[in-house]
Amino acid sequence: MLSKKSSLLLLGPGLLFILIGFCLPALMLLLAPPGISSGQVFARLGRMLQDPYDLTIIGRTMGLGLLVTVLCLALGFPIALLLARSTSRWSGMLLALAIFPLLLSNVVRTYGWLVLLGQNGVIGQVISAMGLPAPQLLYTESAIVLGLLQLFLPLAIVSCYSAVAQVDAGLDDAARGLGASRTRVLWTVTLPLSLPGVIVAATLVFAGSTTAYTTPYLLGGSNQRMLATQLFNYSTVSIDWSAASAVAMIMTVLVFAVSAVSAAVGKKGRIS
């Protein structure tokens, strides 16, 4: 056990740095941007929540975020389940393969969709070759969903993997011995027990996709704005500080709320 004095010495400098280099600027951005009072920020926030254009953006962000979350879980949980319960020696490699994309920047990962979905992209050419008119694939909400799905699948897989791995595999055997089919075991045993971890995975994906910038920027264009790209716009193009602060506030509150849910679920659901 360290003494209070030693603890202070070890924590002090770091605490100072975080407070001054991070907390303070963040708070000032949200509540006191240059030349603007917090009253004005809140007023702008209020207007934003009633403005149809802004509401569309907010709605799109949340809606797409939700869709991406559902899809990530629909694809990611099966992968996590199969890997966690697998005894094959390939499972380690496949897990690494799923985690590997996390090492690449979002630019590299999303760029592939430009190749696939662009006007001269692979899919467009395949469809043209079949004699059908080339559809608009890029700069659509679907493109954004695909990009975000690709981006957050590894995250969903990793989180779900941890959740499934800590459920005793012996329970599956017990259930099947009692007469349950594999599907029934999944729905009545494995899923309920890994639910806390899955919920945490969902909150992570949701938080990430609603605040993502690179992918909506590359794949959405200026017609499919999301919160992050809109924030960038207010900061550099229209230089509207009160609007920027208002959007920043929305994004921050969103992530805070989602993290709170995650923490609450994580605490309740821990089985050990």
Partner: peptide, 15 residues
């Protein structure tokens, strides 16, 4: 971890 990076970037730019 719980503040969006874009917000942090903007904050640092501003301040």
């Amino acid at each position: 971890l719980i503040v969006p990076e874009l917000v942090v970037g903007l904050a640092l730019y501003q301040q």
